[in-house]
């Protein structure tokens, strides 16, 4: 494992006067896969939005390779090498599949590199390749999720953040999405993944953080959290032993 790549120190984020994150601290090291788990409304998406610059922390520090990045615009964060694959897929429905992928590479200027990455995405997601000229809004939910993942990868990030990539997908597609996430991290990318599917998230990751009502209430390796009685009772419905 490399050194600390991304670090949040006592980060507080507010929506108006209500704090959604209270002094959250976490870190992601180079090459790691880190999961962020928690119930609805725990603040998982808010954490990712604070990192990607969609929200500015009202207190605390966010550093990327030692450099403070809190309060930077999303464009600056993306340039630094962090991509955010948002909750609910959020493909551009009236753009074609190809245009969606090109949007992912908007900040890049290396035409040849973009073209070869596009070919790689098509090789990895053949269903997208067959539908390059189709409007993204006409894709199935699973195809849209693949497109959202591919779009995030088109920026050639060093850290990619997935927000509930398995949300609303049929079980076989959920397995497929997790297989892709595993592949991506085996290729050397650092991954921060938010999931409600705690069993899968904890099985896949190196380390995880447990978020409750905007606070980090637990952290450890995936195996440690899978074994924790609290996690088992609250997030795994008591069936963790089977994993």
């Amino acid at each position: 494992m490399g050194c600390c790549m991304l670090r949040l120190e006592n980060v507080t984020v507010r929506y108006g006067r209500i704090a959604a994150l209270h002094e959250v601290s976490l870190e992601v090291r180079e090459g790691e896969m880190v999961s962020l788990i928690g119930a609805n409304g725990a603040g998982k998406s808010t954490t990712l939005k604070a990192i990607s610059g969609l929200l500015a922390p009202s207190a605390g520090r966010i550093t990327w390779e030692g450099r403070p990045i809190g309060g930077l615009a999303p464009r600056g964060i993306l340039k630094a090498g962090i991509a955010h694959c948002p909750e609910g897929r959020r493909v551009f429905p009236h753009l074609t599949v190809r245009e969606n992928l090109e949007m992912g590479a908007l900040l890049r200027r290396d035409r040849a590199g973009i073209a070869s990455d596009l070919d790689r995405m098509i090789a990895r997601f053949p269903r997208l390749g067959e539908r390059l000229r189709q409007a993204a809004g006409t894709l199935s939910g699973g195809e849209q999720q693949m497109l959202a993942i591919a779009r995030a990868l088109m920026s050639r990030p060093r850290l990619v953040m997935f927000d509930e990539p398995s949300l609303g997908l049929a079980p076989n597609l959920v397995q497929q999405v997790f297989a892709i996430v595993r592949e991506i991290r085996q290729e050397g990318l650092t991954v921060l993944m938010v999931e409600q599917n705690a069993l899968a998230a904890l099985t896949l990751c190196d380390r995880a953080y447990l978020l409750e009502t905007g606070r980090v209430v637990g952290t450890g390796t995936g195996a440690e959290l899978l074994a924790s009685p609290h996690v088992r009772a609250a997030y795994l419905g008591g069936h963790a032993a089977a994993a």
């Binding site: 340039k79 992912g104 908007l106």
Partner: peptide, 12 residues
């Protein structure tokens, strides 16, 4: 179509 996601792509 989606200003927030566009900004995530680096659009100003």
């Amino acid at each position: 179509q989606d200003p927030q996601t566009a900004s995530l792509m680096g659009v100003r």
